[in-house]
Amino acid sequence: MAPYLASLLLFGGIYAMLALGLNLQWGHTGLVNLGFVAFFALGAYSAALLTLNGVPLLVAAVIAVVIAGLVAYPLGRLTLRLQDDYLAIVTFGFAEVVRILLLNTRWVGGADGLTGIPQLFGPLAADVRPFIQLGAVLMVVALVLVLARRLTESPYGRVLRAIRDSAEAARSLGKETEGYKVVALVLGSALAGLAGAIYAHYIGYVSPDQFDPSLTFLIFTGIVIGGSSHWGAAVGTLVFIAAMEATRFLGDVGLPISQSDFAQLRLLVIGLLLIVLMQRKREGLWPYRHRERVRVTRDAAA
C-alpha cells in the first residue's frame, strides 16, 4: 500500500510540474501552446536516449531540459511577432510532427518506444527506493515552485501578466513584448521537459502512446479550473486528473459502459468544461492575487 501511495504522489509531482509550466505560459502570459505534450515527450525521449547511450542520469536530465527549452525558442520567434493565433497553430502542428516522428523513427523505438531506461536511484534496494525517489521528486517540485514564484512575484512577472491582459497597451508603454513571450514559452516548455525526464527515469520506458495530444487539453483544463496562482494551477490539475482517472474504476463497479466509451466521455467532459470555463470562470477558482499595497510614507498619516 505504501509504495502504491508513493507512486501516486510521485505522478502527482510530475503533473504538478507540467501544470506549473503551462500556467506560466497561459495563466501568466496568455500564450496558447497546443503542443505542450510534445515538450513533455521531448524531455522524456531525450533523457531516455542519452542514458541508454551511457550518459549519466543527472547530466541527461539537464540536457533534456535544455533541449525542450531550445526547441521552443524558434517556434516562439517564428510566431510571437505575429498574432497570438499563430503560436497556437504552429505548436499544434509541431506536436503532430513530433508524434509522427516518434511513431515512425526506428532509432527512437517507433511504436514500441524505448525500454530499460535507468531508474532514479536504481542502485538502491527496492523496498526503500520508491520513498527516496518520491522525496527527491518532491524536492524538485518545491524548488520549481520557489523559482516560479520568484519570477512571477518580480516586476518581470508583472510585465508578463500585463502582456496577457493587453499586449498592445504593454507595447505602447515601452515594453518589448515579444521577448517576454518567448522567454515564457521557453521556460514553460523547459519545465515540461524536466517533467518528461523525471517521468522517463521513474517508469523506465517511453512510448508514443504515453504522450497523447489529449494530455495537453487535460492539463489545460486543470489549470483553467485552478486559476493562475501556482498553487491553484497545480492543485486544480491534480484534482481534475485524479477525478478523470477515478472514472477508470467506475467500470469495475459494474456500470455497463466500456473502457473506450469512458475515454470518450472524459473527452466530452474536458470539452464542455473548456467551453463553460471560458464563458463563466476564466480566472479559475484560485486566481493569482497580487500583494495588497498600503501606503507607508510620512505624509500618509497627515
Binding site: 493587453s166 497597451a169 499595497r293
Partner: peptide, 9 residues
C-alpha cells in the same frame, strides 16, 4: 486598454 486583471496600483 487596462491590464484588467491587475490591481489599479
Amino acid at each position: 486598454r487596462l491590464f484588467e486583471r491587475l490591481s489599479v496600483i
